[in-house]
Design a protein around this nucleic acid. Structure first.
Lengths: 208, 208, 208, 208
DNA sequence: TATGAATGAGTGTTCATTCAT
DNA sequence: GATGAATGAACACTCATTCAT
């Protein structure tokens, strides 16, 4: 009876291993330049094996997004359960964005990937659906924090959803800017600095 | 006498035609998925002809970036020469960002290109240098507007450069968010709305 | 137990098959005009498969050279181990040159390859080194035969190395001459005749 | 009336210029790697112009052979008209081979080129014919020198034609060997040395 | 299940040749 | 005649995907 369980566990572990390897390789080379062979080598698995778990390279790539969205959901839920004041919670979320990118800089790139035109068309509708659900969930969680802050009179009345859109956009843009600058060899402001200042400024627009 | 002039004109027109075609194709398929043959077909030119004007696919791609940076510089300079109040100028710049993306949605994607890891390494150092110079120029122009607004007491004292970083990041992020949503088939907030609200909010953090 | 062995055997056989095909195609079309697809078709293998065994067209070509140098070394060593009188051995070597060319007319052309300007620069230094070592080895083997003939008083004293240079040059030149004539449609003297007479003449300059 | 002559003169000069340029470029890059553009640039002429004088790249290449064969004929005839003893004349011819290669190392490569299989088929039959006639002429001229030396009792009786074949083969082979060695970075014997020693040895087989 | 050898379509780039001016 | 921009076929090489073992 434990056999089936073990099988499932092993399968999950194997998948996990491939994902970890994929994240590393995609991060280093980007989607196009990364090869399935690279990933297989990194995961110490044969190429064929990857195809036992993922339908295609794209599928593998997008699956990384699921994973990171999941991680983010969990992190936000943990923050929400902390009992902190809502504005402090938002601050935590914002900081989490940074930590998240610092720890998994690759994951950010998966997001950028989704913005690539023509690519989505190659994804299974089910995958697309899945992404939407998870993204909506994350947005919704943060919205609740903002709503709570407004309720408690900590923030001026705003459409919480819009605030979250701005919050997330700002973060995405900051990462993009700092990554581009790093790539170009320019070192005028680190993401850390930008990130901190951005929030201070952001709050000026929120607080009563 | 007119012959040489005509030659130059024709050459420019041909280059222009290739660029226009390239923008369209890159926009539709992204850098990796776009083929030189796609571009040639779109430009109604043979593949070889493209190589008469550009050294490589990358070179062609980057030239589009130059072009758009140039356009942006000119637009900002025009705004600065308008004699408007600095805060109104900034508003114009912000609106220009939107118009720019509305008119050349493809061009925005060229910017994203620079964030791709590993790709930069394939560019000539001179090209890199050129990009940096042009980007710095644009940032610097907008900084001057912000500085003027602070000088005139319209904005609270801030490091102008930081303000511009936030401004640009926010715009980049908004575009990114709305494009991703469009790709995913989600239609909850248009870029237009996000863009307008973002500025209102942004100014709350700036104004005295 | 046998599986690994079979794998190795199959790999060797596959490589062999590609080499045989390559020799034929290169012989027919020359290096530049031969395409990887030609070779693949001839070997009844896909293009990709060739690249599983050889890094590049050049690499494949040079490997043929190694092969033929190896064959030559072995032939000469066999002759040296025959116990024949040194002058008879030299005769055998000379005859071997002819047989070699008769059996593998293609292989001769690989030697010509090395004389092509600009091409060498594309080879790995290690490969270059390897070629030198193998060529030196062959020259050295024949030199020893000549030295032995001189020692035994069969030949007049000469620098053995120089004798071998002349011997080999003469052979190369004869092949070249006869091939060119064949290509041009001239049939005045066969390589066989030239080859025989050349040795008779050559010996007149060597014998006491 | 002088106009037609001038035209012819100019045409010849133009052809000459292209040939000189071609020799240089082919020498530097080899046939395959040399481009018509390279040659045009070197000749300070447009690509189109080359095609006014030559049907193809191959045609241009082979025309260089005509030129060098012509030069060789003239040189040999001059030697024959010198009134020297026939054996001295042969020595001169042998030396001329060396000088010829030293001055026009490229021309040697054209000869090697003709040995390339499959190429000849792309040449006009007329061109082929022309080459044969000129080659035959050169061989015949040298044969006459050898015949004279035999007649005068300076050389042992040999079939003069065979002697010339050996002579030419030996030279070709020596050039090939030394060029290959140069390419491979080996410097054990210069062509000059090989060339000198070869003749000494060659004469031992000829003299009474 | 896992493997990894084999596949072959796909791509950027080159360059001999042509032809309108 | 002379030009050189335009052409487009050709080619080496890559790599996602498959499938026999």
């Amino acid at each position: 009876m434990g056999t089936a369980h073990r099988k499932v566990r092993e399968r999950r572990a194997r998948k996990q291993g491939i994902q970890v390897a994929a994240v590393r390789v995609f991060a280093e080379k980007g989607f196009s330049r990364a090869t399935m062979e690279d990933i297989a080598r990194q995961a110490e698995v044969s190429v064929g094996t990857i195809y036992l778990y993922y339908r295609s390279k794209e599928d593998l790539y997008v699956s990384l997004l699921f994973e990171s969205m999941q991680r983010m959901s969990e992190a936000i839920e943990k923050i929400m359960a902390s009992g902190l004041r809502p504005d402090r919670q938002l601050r935590r979320v914002w900081d989490y964005f940074y930590d998240y990118h610092a720890r998994y800089p690759q994951s950010y790139r998966v997001l950028v990937f989704l913005q690539q035109p023509g690519l989505i068309s190659g994804l299974a509708p089910k995958t697309l659906q899945e992404i939407n659900v998870r993204a909506a969930r994350n947005f919704s969680l943060v919205s609740r924090i903002v709503a709570a802050a407004i309720d408690k009179g900590l923030y001026r009345p705003h459409e919480p959803r819009e605030v979250v859109d701005l919050l997330w956009s700002l973060f995405l843009g900051l990462v993009h800017l700092s990554e581009t600058r790093k790539n170009l060899g320019v070192t005028i402001a680190t993401l850390k600095d930008l990130h901190r200042k951005a929030f201070a400024w952001l709050e000026e627009g929120l607080r009563v």
